[in-house]
Amino acid sequence: MSLLQRLLRQNRLTSSQIAKDRLKMVLIHDRSDLSPGMLEALKDEIIATIGKRVQVDPARVTFSLEQDGRTSRLVADIPLIPKMR
């Protein structure tokens, strides 16, 4: 998405949509008792643990908390670097 497109999109968001998005994010963390900072720390620990066995590319790891009803689900996507032969 270009910067211009992003600005236009940003412009169209009403304050209530912004409120809803912010609420959804904050509640995911409230409900799981995992702050964004702790989530980052957890991500580093998991990458380090997995990295002991296989090679992972830390830059491409995505890590997120998602809602599943009223419970939160931790979703990690950890691409492995193919082994050089």
């Binding site: 009403t14 304050s15 209530s16 949509q17 409120a19 809803k20 609420l23 959804k24 509640l27 009803g69 009223r70």
Partner: peptide, 18 residues
């Protein structure tokens, strides 16, 4: 305010709180 997009609609609140 809800109509103008400046207050959360009931549906938004319910979506969030379930």
């Amino acid at each position: 305010m809800v109509a103008a997009g400046d207050m959360l609609a009931i549906g938004d609140v319910l979506d969030v709180l379930m």
